[in-house]
Computed example of a mutant assay.
Amino acid sequence: MDFQLSDDQRALRAGIRELLAGRFDRDRMRAAHDGGGGVDRALWRELGAAGLFALRLPETAGGVGLGLPESVLLFEEMGRALLPGPLAATQLAAGAVKGAAEGDAVVALAEAGRPVGHLGGADALLVLDGEAGGGRVLSGGALRRVVREAGPVRSLDPGTPLWRVPDLAGYEGEPLPDGARPRHEGALLTAAEQLGSAGRSLEAAVQHAGEREQFAAPIGSFQAVKHLCAGMLVRAETARSAVYAAAVTGDPVEIAGAKLLADEAAVGNARDCLQVHGGMGFTWEADVHLHLKRAWLRAGQWLTAAGAEEVLAADLG
């Protein structure tokens, strides 16, 4: 069996990377984070026009008709670029929320007991119900009521504004179609974003290690730095194998393992990248702290480490 990417998949990945390079370069990324991390509606619509949110909708419903593997490739690129916004929730609710498939609507994610990101600019709310993976969508008057009762909270990630919302158990919403698995699929797409972030942290560490000199030699020639970078590569490639495999099978147990490994890779690589950068890595001007903060936040979304471990333990039993 051939597990290499097809030419079409490579072209799809290259296309989203080119789009993000032109519309969300480092200067725009830093401006977005300095400005509070709100969703850029113009870019959101461009992503919709490129087919990102309608990627897995059937062609008969106006979608692209592709699958989880293709979504994973695109979300990996968006994680690499640190693109802010509820990307996974919007794609998963594209068939249930008017305008989401085209990028005209933003769908935020709500999980019990956790703050909601990007609520202030959301057109709908995807509410995850329990650990079984079901979900419903709040919009219109129900969403406006949630917004009225919500309050902003300080966010660890400057690219993700957060709101604390009331208990949503009593709010009626539109159920997702039968067979939808928002928690599992959202966890996989978030794992792909973590994978992209882990890869970008590795690239930044290797680049800095080759440019920064101490004692008349690049710091990358020192054994301790070599070990840090080698460990980062192992984490990223291990997570990549798990994420890509889970995208092919769609198995909840494999998705849990992929999310666990991708979270560890994103957080661990950002931490080690910060160490390679030394004192400047702790400054606001360096990008590495943004990857670390986003990785911490994503690790608590869709499927936490404790939740993933429970899934894996139950499968072993």
Rank of each mutant, 00 (worst) to 15 (best):
V97T: 08
L47R: 06
A112N: 03
E149R: 15
W284T: 14
R144V: 00
E254M: 07
A247S: 13
A198C: 06
E70A: 10
L12Q: 09
G196Q: 09
V39D: 09
A132L: 06
A305E: 15
R10E: 13
E264P: 01
D157E: 11
E46W: 02
G159D: 09
A81C: 10
L57K: 04
L316T: 07
T60W: 02
G307M: 04
L168A: 04
Q275V: 14
V276P: 12
F282Q: 14
R164E: 12
E213M: 08
V147M: 11
E237H: 11
V165D: 02
G85R: 04
G37D: 08
W163G: 00
A112C: 00
W302G: 01
A42E: 15
G117D: 04
M29W: 10
L143K: 10
G135H: 05
N269I: 05
S71R: 07
A245K: 13
L12E: 11
T90W: 03
R271I: 14
D7I: 06
G278T: 06
R164Y: 00
G62F: 02
G65C: 05
A286R: 11
V248K: 13
Q214E: 15
V288F: 03
A112E: 15
M29I: 01
T249S: 15
K98T: 13
A308H: 02
L202A: 08
E310A: 15
R13D: 09
T283I: 01
A93P: 10
D251A: 10
V147G: 00
Q207F: 05
V243G: 10
Q194K: 00
E174I: 06
R183V: 03
A216R: 13
R164M: 05
L74F: 00
R148S: 12
E18H: 09
V253P: 06
V72K: 08
A180N: 08
